[in-house]
């Protein structure tokens, strides 16, 4: 059965879109990623215009993240305290990143810098995760993080505003997660995706959070980021297709529930190895696209208007949270 998408202006098969949502939701619930990097290209394949696909995908991620977040919250997998700090850092980083992008665009080399940075970063993160997880699995060590080197530990302990995060079982200076997420926000604003690929490993390897708590906390952050971006995209660009978003959401919320349950059957390093392979897969696809001649050298613009709403969302969220 086909249904007309009112903003996209095209008809799509209902079950195709729900199926797409199901796959993305499964990955989201399982690995704590938003799924935006997969959503836009897959929706474009079924004929949705790129700008509408990107904006409606963000709206669908709100549903996916809220479903996954609720499931993880009940399983006590969400560190709200850490999540709020990460969210603030990410939003501040996004705001700075937007300005950086405009400078890069004026220099005329933004696309090259963005693509290459993304590929290199995804490759490094993917290889590191896969190598680390494989060695842990071979040694039979459960998902217990290694202790940091003593000199690094003492250096981090000297940072001001030390705070306990009992849910994650770690103690850090507020500056550490805030600064790390500011850098991630900076990168994600430049790359135009939510950045769970980077946030997840960062929480596990740098902040030493348990993998399951990292998944839930990542979903918490994705929920707020995408909620803000949805309102801004609809208000500024009029390109959010609610019908498309809800169809994707029907599939993805169910998928997220299945993913969240499935994640309990996998050990931390098994989850991380899946994430690592996914990052490497996306990296290979992006590298392939870069060197392969396009079928048609013209294409509709997908990414141009995504940064302004992110910036506005950052400003609005900082204002609201500041009160």
């Amino acid at each position: 059965m086909r249904i007309l998408l009112p903003i996209a202006g095209i008809g799509v098969h209902i079950w195709t879109v729900i199926g797409i949502g199901g796959i993305i939701g499964l990955l989201s619930g399982l690995l704590g990623i938003g799924g935006g990097f997969l959503m836009t290209p897959i929706l474009m394949m079924v004929g949705v215009p790129p700008t509408v696909a990107a904006a409606s995908g963000t709206n669908a991620i709100v549903a996916t993240s809220s479903s996954g977040f609720a499931a993880h919250f009940r399983m006590r997998n969400v560190d709200i305290k850490m999540g709020v700090i990460l969210l603030l850092g990410g939003l501040a980083g996004s705001g700075i990143g937007v300005h950086l992008v405009s400078i890069l665009r004026k220099l005329g080399s933004a696309d090259l810098v963005i693509s290459l940075t993304y590929i290199v970063l995804l490759g490094l993160v993917g290889i590191f995760i896969v190598r680390d997880s494989l060695s842990k699995m071979r040694m039979g060590i459960l998902a217990r993080p290694k202790e940091a080197a003593p000199h690094r530990r003492s250096m981090l302990a000297r940072l001001p505003w030390q705070m306990d995060f009992p849910h994650s079982g770690v103690r850090h200076s507020v500056l550490l997660p805030f600064t790390l997420c500011l850098l991630v926000g900076l990168l994600t604003a430049i790359m135009g995706v939510a950045g769970s690929f980077i946030i997840m490993p960062m929480m596990v390897y740098l902040l030493r959070m348990p993998a399951h708590v990292a998944v839930g906390t990542s979903l918490f952050q994705a929920l707020f980021t995408c909620a803000g971006a949805t309102v801004m995209q609809a208000g500024s660009n009029h390109i959010v297709d609610l019908v498309l978003a809800l169809l994707v959401a029907v599939g993805s919320t169910v998928g997220a529930q299945v993913g969240a349950r499935l994640s309990r059957f996998l050990r931390g390093e098994q989850l991380m190895i899946l994430l690592g392979f996914l990052a490497l897969g996306v990296m290979v696809k992006m590298a392939f696209d870069l060197v392969t001649p396009p079928v048609v050298p013209f294409e509709q613009i997908a990414r141009l208007e995504l940064f302004k709403p992110l910036q506005q969302a950052a400003a609005a969220a900082i204002f609201v949270l500041g009160r």
Binding site: N59, A60, V62, A63, T64, S65, S66, S67, G68, F69, A70, A71, A227, T230, V231, M232, Q233, A234, G235, H238, V240, L242, A245, L246, A249, V250, T253, V254, A256, Q257
Partner: peptide
């Protein structure tokens, strides 16, 4: 803007209802 808020809240509700 009203449409954006409705879209966001609907998605939020859909997620929590599924859960």
């Amino acid at each position: 803007w009203a449409y954006g808020v409705v879209a966001m809240l609907t998605a939020l509700l859909a997620g929590f209802l599924t859960d």
